[in-house]
Design a protein around this nucleic acid. Structure first.
Lengths: 261, 261
DNA sequence: CAGCGGCCTGTAGCATGTTACATGTGATTA
DNA sequence: TAATCACATGTAACATGCTACAGGCCGCTG
């Protein structure tokens, strides 16, 4: 126990006892029952959520010890969780200094958006070939929840359902690994700071783009599904890059030309 | 820059193995000098190589303690290295039982090959747009080394240069993250057990396919580069699936139709 | 006043101790 | 013989101890 107990708690990750208590994540079905998730897993998800939600600011330097104290566990599971996150690029260990919360650079953002284009557009086409009524219904549910959240101006909730919608589409393609990887890519993009200007309008525009995707999937029209997904991702890319870098870099557009002829 | 800091233990694998032996290291420098890599990193690379080369058999169950003893280090860096490998899917922790070396299933293989198609074909097209003479020369070097190894019947060495060739192409696309991910996907596919029957012939066929890719890149012909890469990956997919599953699953072919129109 | 150099604190990295549990084994019993 | 169960063994998961080092602080020196 190092001194400085009174150090201000810059990490207000969650309630003190949240680790040992059950998380009641609202909404979607659990893919697997994990009654006794390991502490490491719980810490990993907590830190991941904290970064995504902006509770852990990009660029900030933390220590395993302080994070462990905040969670009420020892250093080991925290370190192991961070190793996991470091591999995906969300954090970086700096020897004898701490753990840096990483901010995806403009170039990194371009790379990520290009990867999403390359993967999700074909996945949407494939999903249109494989979709079944249950898949339709699941997508409809997510889209409705997204629309409700968007009209309410609840941006985090909208983004959460946006994520679940994309995951459902990607899983419907039959390639689970693709879905997982795309999901991990999304962790690297900070979405919490979306510009306040014209926020509700862009949120509703996003919902409209998803409606187009769903319509194409329901019609079992691969070409339309791919086109709709491509349009959506390009739109998203432009929005993010404009917001992040002032001037939009056009790298993702170049990649967009490479996908789907 | 005091070099010998304290006791720097050497990581030694039980099987004497010249993983990173310096054949043909000439010219191509390492991307980064790491004079004092951490023990965890060294163990991770050693285990990764051991799995790829088949020294750690798929399906086998090991313990962190025994691996640590074999490497002459404590359990901690071994465990941390394995956590890293577990995230990529090479191993899996089984509570109170050990660490399982995973064998990629047929379905998993299909997923991986589909991902490679979706990523590497556009990457080849993009690389054809961006390639420069130095890139040409690097690819030529790898291809020559690959051809030499193939005619000598040295399959592991051939595969090593095959990997470097693909990495060079993918990096030439300008998307480093794409290159890294494809590289990690390759770790999951056991290549060491390629069928002995007609081995040299298929090795030379592979070299020919790479020659086509290189020719298209040198000609700065994106369409041809994409087509050549696609043909090569489809060929590889058929070879691997036939070998692995007896009957070839056609899932990657379905995905192949989705890429590049 | 400015430059400098040693001390002090906090940290990651690594080693080791502790705990709960899954599984095999062999004695015990019907 | 066959089924059962207490126990020994080995393990991951977690907690804690230890060490070298990076970087700031502060007094010292010119």
């Amino acid at each position: 126990m190092t001194a400085g107990v009174g150090a201000r708690r810059s990490v207000r990750v969650s309630r003190e006892q949240s680790i040992s208590s059950e998380e009641s994540v609202s909404g979607a079905s659990f893919r697997e029952i994990r009654p006794d998730r390991s502490i490491t897993e719980q810490v990993r998800e907590a830190v991941r959520s904290a970064i995504i939600d902006g509770d852990l600011a990009p660029g900030a330097l933390h220590s395993v010890q302080r994070l462990a104290d905040a969670f009420g566990v020892s250093r080991t599971p925290v370190r192991e969780a961070l190793i996991d996150l470091a591999r995906t690029g969300m954090v970086r260990f700096e020897r004898n200094r701490g753990v840096r919360i990483l901010q995806t650079s403009i170039h990194g953002l371009e790379e990520i958006l290009a990867l999403r284009l390359l993967l999700e557009v074909p996945a949407a086409r494939r999903a249109a070939q494989l979709a079944t009524p249950p898949v339709d219904r699941a997508l409809e549910r997510e889209l409705m929840a997204m629309a409700t959240a968007a009209t309410a101006g609840d941006e985090p909730l909208t983004m959460r359902h946006d994520r679940l919608f994309h995951r459902a589409v990607n899983e419907a393609s039959g390639n689970q690994r693709l879905a997982d990887y795309v999901d991990s890519l999304r962790d690297l993009v900070v979405t919490s700071g979306v510009s306040t200007a014209g926020r509700s309008r862009s949120l509703e525009a996003i919902v409209a783009e998803h409606e187009a995707i769903l319509a194409a999937l329901r019609a079992r029209d691969p070409a339309a599904a791919g086109a709709a997904m491509k349009a959506h991702l390009v739109s998203t890319a432009l929005l993010l890059l404009e917001q992040e870098g002032g001037r939009a870099a056009d790298a993702p557009l170049v990649w967009a030309e490479l996908v789907e002829g």
